[in-house]
């Protein structure tokens, strides 16, 4: 799972009012190089919750992203390539996602988060 998906994902447990962002417990992170598309990054930048994204990338061991951003940051090629790397090239391979409200752990194996809820969580 990439941080692109992590930034969209939230805990869906019954009764939870703010299930975002899921905290990342990283046991294994892998990198896969993909081609960069600046237009896509700019579109995604509007959707990304930056604070959650920074925290997630740190949990994955990547600390190059700036804390503060504004739309002009996007004009820097250097920034774009770091954003690209964190958003689309880092994969959480083994570990867990943790619900911020209940502490419930959603295990991640072979890169696939298990988001199945127990019957009493639906």
């Amino acid at each position: 799972m990439r941080l692109l998906t992590h930034n969209m994902l939230s805990s869906n447990i019954k009764g939870v009012t703010n299930g975002f962002p899921l905290r990342i417990e990283a046991e294994k992170v892998v990198e896969k190089t993909v081609e960069m598309n600046a237009d896509f990054l700019k579109k995604m930048f509007e959707k990304i919750q930056w604070k959650a994204f920074i925290d997630a990338s740190r949990a994955m061991g990547y600390t190059e992203l700036p804390e503060e951003v504004d739309p002009t940051t996007l004009e820097s090629d250097e920034f774009l390539s770091k954003f690209h790397h964190a958003l689309l090239e880092l994969h959480l391979e083994e570990g867990a996602l943790v619900c911020p409200e209940t502490g419930r752990r959603f295990p991640v194996n072979k890169g696939i988060p298990n988001m199945l809820l127990h019957e009493d969580e639906v």
Partner: peptide
């Protein structure tokens, strides 16, 4: 794509207005 193990009948846990 990124894969999720989940049951659509339990609802999708995704942020509003992003897809």
């Amino acid at each position: 794509g990124d894969l999720l193990l989940g049951d659509m009948g339990q609802g999708l846990g995704l942020r509003p207005g992003v897809i």
